[in-house]
């Protein structure tokens, strides 16, 4: 391998290693500890779940802007059902179904009616957000109506020897594993990549594109709802806007991940690395007392550098 292809494929990975090394150097006592890394995985669990779901639609060259609103809506739906006295399993189940239904709706708009995903999911983003406001009456639902066990889920974990692996982290790992199996190990996944590679060719070769889009968007909606529930559990409350920050970060994570694959297509494990880059920077730079706004500029710059390196080395090759 020559230097350029190595840089293209592993530039982002090398960048991540450099970031970790830098933070380890600046924070020798606190960064590279099991405790801090478990914290990071817990802090990133919601974003990981949304980004893994986002990867599924981005494999088909589509994307979903409504995931943040769906996350908020799912949290609100569950909290409202709690306040009406429904048990946790029922409230969580209905919230997940809402995610599935919302995703299916996106799928119908994009796959059946044929609206551009940007337009369709921009519209449903506002719709889901409005629905969250209507269901909640614009208020934050918190306090006694949220069952203690629901809030405790995010605070507890599995004790393995001296460390406690947070429940949230385990859920995120499980979701990533499921998406990995689906995308990398099944015919369904290979066909999704085929659609992403060449929609017409996939269609002509008999891939049921419409049905695939319905399923893919439904899964993205479901994962967004799950992330919203994790968020609600972590803050033991639900607010009609609380998931809104997840969408852009999830897309950013998938793009960061795409810089690492051979053909520039999204791979879920690469997405996880993208999520880790964003989260490790947040965690490390906070610990280094770097201003929150400077941190944002840095994160944006790193995305640009990663994508530029990837784009430049690819154009150089061709």
């Amino acid at each position: 391998m020559r230097a350029l292809p190595i840089l293209r494929r592993f530039g982002t990975l090398i960048g991540f290693a450099l970031i970790v090394a830098f933070l380890w150097w600046r924070l020798p006592d606190t960064f590279m500890t099991a405790r801090n890394w478990l914290n990071i995985t817990q802090q990133l669990s919601m974003l990981t779940v949304v980004a893994a779901g986002m990867t599924v639609v981005m494999v088909m060259n589509d994307f979903d802007l409504s995931v943040g609103s769906m996350a908020s809506l799912a949290g609100i739906v569950a909290a409202m059902l709690f306040s009406l006295g429904y048990p946790i399993w029922a409230a969580v189940g209905v919230a997940l179904l809402a995610g599935l239904a919302g995703g299916l709706f996106n799928g119908v708009l994009v796959g059946v009616i044929g609206i551009l995903p940007f337009v369709a999911t921009l519209a449903t983003m506002t719709m889901f957000s409005g629905a969250a406001f209507i269901v909640s009456g614009g208020k934050t639902i918190s306090g006694r109506v949220i069952p203690e066990a629901f809030g405790n889920f995010a605070r507890q974990g599995l004790e393995i020897g001296p460390v406690t692996v947070p429940n949230l982290s385990m859920v995120a790992v499980a979701v990533v594993a499921l998406v990995w199996v689906l995308l990398e190990q099944t015919t369904f996944g290979r066909r999704l990549y085929a659609i992403g590679g060449n929609l017409e060719a996939a269609h002509l070769s008999g891939v049921p594109v419409r049905r695939f889009k319905l399923i893919a968007f439904s899964l993205t909606g479901l994962s967004a709802a799950l992330a919203g529930l994790l968020y609600a559990s972590r803050v033991a409350s639900a607010n009609p806007t609380q998931g809104s920050g997840l969408m852009l970060n999830a897309i950013a994570a998938v793009f960061l991940g795409m810089t690492m694959s051979e053909e520039g297509e999204p791979r879920v494990l690469a997405t996880v690395l993208g999520v880790l880059i964003l989260g490790v920077l947040d965690n490390g730079l906070t610990q280094m007392n770097v201003d929150s706004y400077v941190r944002q500029i840095l994160v944006g710059s790193i995305i640009l550098v990663a994508v530029s390196v990837s784009a430049l080395s690819r154009s150089r090759r061709s």
Partner: peptide, 30 residues
């Protein structure tokens, strides 16, 4: 608000001497 919890965790990792919050404490109890 969830990020407030994350940043509190980071500050605990840094072993700061004190933390001041301006947010509903019930939501950041974790």
């Amino acid at each position: 608000v969830a990020a407030v919890i994350s940043r509190i965790e980071d500050m605990v990792t840094q072993n700061v001497d004190a933390i001041v919050i301006n947010v509903d404490p019930a939501q950041v109890e974790a």
